[in-house]
């Protein structure tokens, strides 16, 4: 447990404190829970709009990241792993983007999350941008995969804020299914 992040006078406090994580996997190497955990690096924590921009301005844009890199922005106290208590009954919306679109979409995604535009209470756990060889993937994780009202609302907000081309495919996957797929 880390100490609370201090918000100085004049700064604009966010609804939640967030952590920025980075991970990179050697291409071709099988992902396991253990090496995934070992590859996760905590980059920083922020609790205000100003602190967010302080980090974000120095963070590489998805376009400039090497393949198999992931940036995770999760609420403080939630590790970006399926096994975390906040995630284990949850799932994620997956949006696959062609190269060149992701930097703008990722920024819009984060701003919507930090600004509480999803209107789903505590349901959002965090968001990930995954840079892959031929595409980039944005995913939004929520706590309760079974809550179709919430997952529907997240999908609708995502569509609106990402301003996606009409043919963009969106897919929902429960972490339980991801876990089963990984261990089978």
């Amino acid at each position: 447990i880390l100490p609370p992040v201090e918000v100085k006078p004049g700064e604009h406090r966010l609804q939640y404190t967030y952590c920025i994580w980075f991970s990179r996997r050697a291409p071709g190497k099988q992902a396991t829970t253990q090496n995934y955990d070992q590859n996760l690096q905590l980059i920083g924590r922020f609790a205000s709009v100003e602190q967010f921009w302080g980090f974000y301005s120095y963070l590489a844009r998805p376009t400039h990241l090497a393949s198999h890199s992931d940036i995770h922005i999760f609420k403080d106290g939630i590790k970006p792993m399926w096994e975390d208590g906040a995630n284990k009954n949850g799932g994620k919306w997956i949006v696959r983007l062609r190269k060149g679109l992701s930097s703008r979409c990722w920024e819009n995604m984060i701003l919507a999350m930090l600004g509480e535009q999803f209107l789903v209470g505590d349901e959002i756990c965090g968001a990930v941008i995954s840079v892959r060889f031929q595409e980039d993937i944005i995913s939004v994780w929520n706590r309760t995969a079974q809550d179709t009202l919430t997952t529907g609302r997240i999908r609708d907000t995502l569509k609106r804020v990402l301003n996606l081309p009409p043919n963009t495919v969106m897919e929902y996957k429960t972490h339980n299914d991801s876990l089963k797929q990984c261990t089978s």
């Binding site: 700064e11 302080g54 600004g115 804020v161």
Partner: peptide
């Protein structure tokens, strides 16, 4: 309780704030 909601344009304006070091 009350939620702290920010619009995208407001957040973007804050990008150049001197406090965003």
């Amino acid at each position: 309780g009350t939620r702290i909601i920010y619009e995208r344009n407001f957040l973007l304006q804050m990008r150049n704030s001197p406090l965003a070091r």
